[in-house]
Amino acid sequence: MNLTSANDAPSISARHLCVSFDDISVLSDINLDFYPGKTSAILGANGSGKTTLIRALLGLLPVHEGSVEIHGQILENFKDWHRVAYVPQKLINSATVPVSVFETVNAALVFPSQKMSGKEKKSQVLSALAQVGLEHRAQDRLDELSDGQQRRVLLARALATKADIYILDEPTAGVDSANQVVLVSAIRSLVAKGSCVIMITHELGPFKHDIDNAIVLANGGVAYHGPVANLPSEAESIHHNLGTTNHSTTNQARLLD
């Protein structure tokens, strides 16, 4: 099932996408479209393939079968990576050599295909930090910030790029409720400007009024794709039809919080 949007072409499309690790299928026959000006939430129990799906959409994992298109171009031919921003759960090497908050955000503006002046970069970095309420911490070491503040810095990295596709892996995990409001507001402003936002989340709580499409992954496929409003009854049916474990039921109950 695809939820189509106005007359826009999809920002990202997946067709018959299959991902396997060592011949074990993790995702099979995934067909999804993500549209500009829409927010999509990818939901599912632990191990359901949420992170695998976004990594496959970004070309970070080899796709066993099927294809991904970004802005109408096959992933392998896509070059305009400055139009795509990715927020991982955490940076791999953030706590080895001291790295300042400014440098962390600035590094997201390094694009081999697009040159920016130092002045332009500085302006975008400080503006993005202001959006997440951390401009006063620009010169501090990243590893001196709390986990929640570090997640805000990661979102600032994405905001600074001024991309039109944002892929976020649990953007509010570990962020307190006051700062979740800041993050939700920043993400809402991206969508208002026509950006396509795709996020993995374990709980819809802070976003429940902002999600246009909810996608629930289970047993390697899309178990539900539709409006959040229909999610509760669908989730029950998913549980019944797919015979998911009690653990999944608990997780799905959390999604609806």
Partner: peptide, 20 residues
């Protein structure tokens, strides 16, 4: 230097930025 720094900070986001 900037590309090597971005890669050193996080290999995956660097890849998404189009850095080889």
């Amino acid at each position: 230097g900037n590309q090597i720094f971005a890669m050193s900070l996080d290999l995956e986001t660097a890849r998404v930025q189009g850095i080889r």
